[in-house]
């Protein structure tokens, strides 16, 4: 565990609290992609199946439980509690285009051709692109509530912070995980446009609006 990794995880935690806070205070999941949230549940369940056979640490254990539980809770809020506030007609990204390639890639590029190993790999590839339905929705509506942009910024920061964490681990622990690194770089890259608008607009006190 190094500082980048810890800050990354805390940023990930913060993003989830921000999202739940947004839904509960505005009593609405407007602007949030249900598909992206459903993909995150898939990612966490596929990756953290190792709770059953790999013990890492108490920290790791509780974080995994938290990420699975909170992502399922968010789906519940969107699907039942605040269902009328979700507009499926603007959340139209075809998730098959993400899940399909993630399945195929994980079958080809993995460390070991074993069920749980492929699930882990699948979860890494799927997480890399899981934000796309959300970004697609943002692109379509051209604007976002400020709190939603804070959620996305915290989520993007989590991924960005994992990069210096890998560099640090390469030098100090000799750990290199090419699958996680390549997928992580792709994932972080997807946020670049968003970050540009976030830094130049939202953090200057303006509303998040894309040029028409």
């Amino acid at each position: 565990m190094n500082l980048f990794r810890l800050l990354g995880d805390l940023s990930h935690l913060a993003s989830i609290f921000i999202l739940i806070h947004k839904i509960q205070t505005t009593r609405s999941c407007r602007g949030i992609s249900f598909q992206t949230q459903a993909l995150y549940v898939t990612v966490f369940v596929a990756r953290y199946i190792d709770l059953f056979f790999r013990w890492i640490s108490l920290y790791n254990f509780f974080m995994k439980i938290f990420f699975i539980a909170s992502s399922v809770y968010i789906l519940y809020l969107m699907k039942y509690r605040y269902r009328p506030t979700h507009d499926p007609s603007i959340d139209t990204f075809k998730v098959e285009y993400l899940v399909g390639p993630a399945v195929v890639l994980s079958l080809i590029f993995n460390y070991k051709f074993e069920f749980t190993e492929i699930l882990w790999t699948f979860s890494i590839y799927l997480e890399a692109v899981a934000i796309l339905p959300q970004l697609f929705m943002l692109q379509r509506t051209g604007e976002a509530e400020t709190i939603t942009t804070h959620y996305l910024a915290a989520l993007g920061a989590y991924r960005a912070l994992y990069i210096p964490n890998w560099i640090y681990r390469y030098f100090t622990e000799d750990v290199v995980d090419p699958i996680a690194i390549v997928a992580g770089l792709v994932q972080t890259g997807l946020y670049l446009d968003f970050f540009y608008v976030y830094f130049t607009k939202v953090l200057q006190g303006q509303k998040f609006e894309l040029p028409a």
């Binding site: 190792d50 790999r54 640490s57 994992y162 890998w166 681990r169 000799d174 995980d177 699958i179 996680a180």
Partner: peptide, 10 residues
């Protein structure tokens, strides 16, 4: 062998 990979990451 998991030792050389990042499986301890979240």
């Amino acid at each position: 062998d998991d030792d050389a990979t990042g499986k301890d990451e979240l």
